[in-house]
């Protein structure tokens, strides 16, 4: 293997983004991924383990890791933290009872050192359901304003069912270089 091909390979690697998608069970992570990818979302079983989707977005290759959110398997989330460029936290905006749970798990996640460099996109999913909280309300409930100032974050309301808001969320571009590359993707 010549030097040139090695360099090419490294270059190609740089354009690969690793995006970790987590959140409580029933928040719609898998549905979001499949919807973005234009696949059928009518038959989705609760995720036992994880799914990886590779998508091309502009000149980037996105590796989206959609990890199951059932309580039993949340402890395995940490196995996916390494080298995560972008973090997507999905909230079921209609599940008011478990917003406590949701806040607790998100706070825990953000304490994780290996994720300290990752930008955070919060998707307030299920906006199509009557009675769902708006992104502003979710921001208050999850107390997002109190988050560490060094973290780039954004919340976007969406509906994986109708597809509304998904592209908006994935179009966000924070300022710093690292995050730019990530969030162009997002």
């Amino acid at each position: 293997m010549g030097l040139l091909s090695i360099i090419r390979k490294i270059k190609r690697k740089e354009k690969e983004m690793r995006i970790l998608m987590v959140g409580l069970d029933n928040s719609g992570k898998t549905t979001i991924v499949l919807k973005i990818n234009g696949e059928d979302t009518s038959v989705i079983s609760p995720t036992l383990g994880f799914n990886i989707k590779t998508m091309a977005y502009n000149k980037y290759t996105l590796n989206i890791w959609d990890v199951g959110g059932q309580r039993t398997i949340r402890s395995y989330w940490r196995n996916y933290f390494e080298q995560t460029d972008g973090l997507v936290w999905v909230v079921d905006s209609s599940d008011l009872r478990r917003l406590d749970d949701c806040k607790f798990e998100l706070d825990n996640l953000l304490k994780e050192e290996r994720l300290s460099g990752a930008s955070l996109l919060i998707l307030a999913n299920k906006q199509d359901i009557q009675g769902a909280l708006s992104p502003d309300e979710i921001t208050k409930v999850l107390n997002l304003e109190a988050m560490d100032k060094t973290r780039h974050w954004r919340i976007v309301g969406c509906s994986a069912y109708t597809g509304d808001g998904l592209l908006e969320g994935f179009d966000w571009r924070p300022l710093d270089e690292r995050a730019v590359t990530t969030m162009i993707a997002l």
Partner: peptide
């Protein structure tokens, strides 16, 4: 006690749903 739980979070009043 359950109903007051979400209210604790970020001092936000959760509406009553059907």
């Amino acid at each position: 006690s359950r109903n007051t739980e979400p209210t604790k979070v970020g001092s936000f009043k959760v509406p009553d749903l059907p």
